[in-house]
Protein backbone atom coordinates (compact mmCIF):
# COMPACT_ATOMS: atom_id res chain seq x y z
CA UNK A 1 0.00 0.00 0.00
CA UNK A 2 1.30 3.42 -0.99
CA UNK A 3 0.29 6.69 0.67
CA UNK A 4 1.02 9.84 -1.30
CA UNK A 5 2.27 12.29 1.31
CA UNK A 6 1.48 15.88 0.23
CA UNK A 7 5.09 16.78 1.07
CA UNK A 8 7.13 13.66 0.23
CA UNK A 9 5.16 12.07 -2.58
CA UNK A 10 4.25 8.36 -2.81
CA UNK A 11 5.79 6.30 -0.01
CA UNK A 12 5.44 2.74 1.24
CA UNK A 13 3.04 2.20 4.13
CA UNK A 14 5.95 1.08 6.37
CA UNK A 15 6.97 4.75 6.64
CA UNK A 16 3.61 5.67 8.19
CA UNK A 17 2.02 5.19 11.61
CA UNK A 18 -1.75 4.87 12.01
CA UNK A 19 -3.00 7.47 14.48
CA UNK A 20 -6.59 6.36 14.65
CA UNK A 21 -10.08 7.05 13.43
CA UNK A 22 -10.39 10.52 11.87
CA UNK A 23 -14.10 10.80 12.68
CA UNK A 24 -13.68 11.13 16.44
CA UNK A 25 -14.48 14.44 18.05
CA UNK A 26 -12.73 15.03 21.33
CA UNK A 27 -15.01 16.62 23.95
CA UNK A 28 -13.80 19.73 25.77
CA UNK A 29 -11.22 18.52 28.35
CA UNK A 30 -13.37 20.06 31.11
CA UNK A 31 -16.49 18.28 29.89
CA UNK A 32 -18.29 15.97 32.34
CA UNK A 33 -20.49 14.57 29.59
CA UNK A 34 -19.75 10.87 30.03
CA UNK A 35 -21.74 9.87 26.98
CA UNK A 36 -19.64 12.19 24.82
CA UNK A 37 -16.44 10.77 26.32
CA UNK A 38 -17.70 7.23 25.88
CA UNK A 39 -18.48 7.94 22.24
CA UNK A 40 -15.04 9.50 21.73
CA UNK A 41 -13.24 6.50 23.18
CA UNK A 42 -15.38 3.59 21.97
CA UNK A 43 -17.85 4.43 19.21
CA UNK A 44 -16.55 3.59 15.74
CA UNK A 45 -18.34 3.61 12.41
CA UNK A 46 -16.48 0.53 11.11
CA UNK A 47 -17.56 1.18 7.51
CA UNK A 48 -17.14 -1.23 4.61
CA UNK A 49 -15.85 1.44 2.25
CA UNK A 50 -14.34 4.91 2.57
CA UNK A 51 -13.01 5.67 6.06
CA UNK A 52 -11.56 8.92 7.45
CA UNK A 53 -8.23 8.19 9.14
CA UNK A 54 -5.32 10.04 10.73
CA UNK A 55 -1.85 8.84 9.76
CA UNK A 56 1.57 10.23 10.60
CA UNK A 57 4.42 10.11 8.10
CA UNK A 58 6.64 9.07 11.00
CA UNK A 59 9.41 7.67 8.81
CA UNK A 60 9.51 10.73 6.58
CA UNK A 61 8.50 14.37 7.05
CA UNK A 62 6.64 13.48 10.29
CA UNK A 63 3.54 15.47 9.24
CA UNK A 64 0.13 14.30 10.46
CA UNK A 65 -2.18 13.49 7.59
CA UNK A 66 -5.91 13.20 7.00
CA UNK A 67 -6.35 10.12 4.83
CA UNK A 68 -9.48 8.62 3.24
CA UNK A 69 -8.88 4.88 2.82
CA UNK A 70 -11.29 2.31 1.44
CA UNK A 71 -11.45 -0.52 3.98
CA UNK A 72 -12.43 -3.03 1.26
CA UNK A 73 -9.83 -2.20 -1.39
CA UNK A 74 -7.16 -0.18 0.52
CA UNK A 75 -7.55 2.44 -2.18
CA UNK A 76 -6.58 5.87 -0.87
CA UNK A 77 -8.76 8.57 -2.36
CA UNK A 78 -7.42 11.63 -0.54
CA UNK A 79 -4.48 12.75 1.61
CA UNK A 80 -4.11 16.19 3.21
CA UNK A 81 -2.18 17.83 6.04
CA UNK A 82 -4.16 17.69 9.30
CA UNK A 83 -2.94 21.19 10.11
CA UNK A 84 -4.42 22.53 6.89
CA UNK A 85 -2.75 24.09 3.93
CA UNK A 86 0.90 25.05 3.99
CA UNK A 87 2.68 27.80 2.09
CA UNK A 88 3.93 27.12 -1.42
CA UNK A 89 7.39 26.48 0.04
CA UNK A 90 6.00 23.49 1.91
CA UNK A 91 3.91 21.95 -0.81
CA UNK A 92 4.97 19.62 -3.57
CA UNK A 93 5.24 21.26 -6.93
CA UNK A 94 2.71 20.03 -9.48
CA UNK A 95 5.44 18.64 -11.76
CA UNK A 96 6.85 16.58 -8.89
CA UNK A 97 3.64 14.63 -8.58
CA UNK A 98 3.69 11.05 -9.84
Amino acid sequence: MLITCPYCGPRDVIEFTYQGDGNRERPDPASQNFEAWNAYVYDRLNPAGDHNEIWQHSGGCRAHLRVVRNTLTHEISSVAFVRGDHSSAARRKAEDKP
Binding site: P6, Y7, C8, G9, G60, C61, R62, A63, S88, A89, A90, R91, R92, K93, D96
Partner: peptide
Protein backbone atom coordinates in the same frame (compact mmCIF):
# COMPACT_ATOMS: atom_id res chain seq x y z
CA UNK B 1 8.65 23.36 -3.58
CA UNK B 2 8.81 20.46 -1.15
CA UNK B 3 12.22 18.88 -0.63
CA UNK B 4 13.91 21.62 -2.68
CA UNK B 5 17.54 22.39 -1.94
CA UNK B 6 20.99 23.23 -3.21
CA UNK B 7 24.65 23.05 -2.32
CA UNK B 8 27.65 25.18 -3.21
CA UNK B 9 30.10 22.48 -2.15
CA UNK B 10 30.77 24.16 1.21
CA UNK B 11 27.30 24.96 2.48
CA UNK B 12 24.16 22.94 1.76
CA UNK B 13 20.47 23.37 2.46
CA UNK B 14 17.35 21.32 1.74
CA UNK B 15 13.75 21.06 2.92
CA UNK B 16 12.91 17.82 4.72
CA UNK B 17 9.39 18.55 6.02
Amino acid sequence: GAGGGLSDGVKSVFGFA
